[in-house]
Amino acid sequence: MNADRLRPAALALAAVALAAVLTGCQEGGSAAGPAAPSAPVAGTTAAPGSGGSGGSGGSGGGSGATAAPTVAPVVQKPAAPKTSVPKTSSPKTSVPEPAASSHGVGCVDSPPGPDDVDPDEFALYRIEELDGSTGKVNLVVQHGVWGCASKDSDGVPFVGTGEESRWALDQAAYVTATNPIVSSSGSQRIGVQELIDWVAAHPDSGLVFRYETGDDGAIHRLEQVFAP
């Protein structure tokens, strides 16, 4: 009995709803209601008419152009100030003067010490002959240094220091001589026997020679130093 009473009311409600749907289709061209206005995108400016309702052709908004995004200005960082680095000058080092030569430059005017002695030169005083089977003779020499020439002298003296020593000279050694051993101021090669004969005739002359030793420790090269 209650169902029969409610049926007419339900039919009436359905008719009203259908009428409402038909009315909406005629006004908007679709069953959907007007579109909700879209929120503007951050950083952009909304175009005119974008929030309006009820246009023709089924769109809820107007046909305005989409706004271009606003570009934020680029902030340039200030350039760091240039700092000048002070130049440090390297400390000046004193350049050592070249070693003095053996002929008076940088000569000694006082008794020489062990540090002043030239290890490659000596003054020759005598020659001692040995047994021929050794193939050597002994040179009696004294090491020293070149002294300073006096005003009245044309040459530079060789000042010996320390005790005399003996050095073996190979009888096949390369020997050169100048004045007074030979009659020339230039170096000339002579034999060991020629040197022995001259020194025997002029003992304790103190002529200066530069020498070189071989692997056996004996002198294999002997060159007289010319001193006027």
Rank of each mutant, 00 (worst) to 15 (best):
A79L: 10
R166Y: 02
D152E: 14
V192L: 09
V182P: 03
Y211L: 07
V95L: 14
T83E: 15
V225K: 10
R166I: 04
G54F: 08
V117H: 06
C25Y: 10
G206N: 01
M1S: 12
V175E: 00
P203N: 12
S205I: 00
D131R: 06
A68C: 05
D116T: 01
L195T: 04
A9M: 05
V108R: 12
T178M: 02
P86G: 09
G61D: 12
V137T: 11
L169T: 07
S153M: 05
I181V: 15
D216Q: 07
E163D: 14
V74H: 08
A36S: 10
E121K: 13
A15W: 01
K136Q: 13
K151Y: 02
A100G: 14
V95H: 09
P73F: 04
A14M: 08
P180Y: 10
L130M: 14
A19F: 04
W146Q: 11
A123Y: 04
A20C: 07
G186E: 15
P37L: 09
D116W: 00
F209T: 07
G160I: 05
L22Y: 09
A32C: 01
G160K: 01
T23F: 05
P111G: 11
P157Q: 13
V182L: 08
G186V: 09
S150H: 06
S53K: 07
S89R: 06
A200D: 15
A80T: 11
L13F: 03
S84F: 07
G162A: 07
R210H: 08
A100N: 14
L11F: 03
Q224R: 04
E97W: 02
V16D: 13
R5W: 04
N179F: 10
P96D: 15
G28W: 05
D204I: 01
A47M: 05
G64Q: 04
S38F: 02
D204R: 02
G191V: 05
D115P: 00
A10Q: 08
A46Q: 10
Q171R: 14
A9Q: 09
A36K: 06
G106W: 09
A20M: 08
V140K: 00
E163Y: 01
Q171A: 03
E97V: 08
G144A: 06
A99Q: 13
A12W: 02
D120M: 05
V156M: 07
N2E: 13
V145G: 00
V175G: 00
T88F: 03
P119N: 14
A36L: 08
G58E: 08
P91L: 14
A42E: 14
P112T: 11
G51D: 14
Y211C: 02
D4S: 06
S89Q: 10
D197V: 09
T45I: 11
G132E: 15
R166G: 03
T70V: 08
E212S: 11
A32K: 00
K92T: 12
P228S: 13
S153Y: 01
G64N: 05
P81M: 09
G60V: 02
P180Q: 15
R7H: 03
S150Q: 13
S94D: 13
G54A: 13
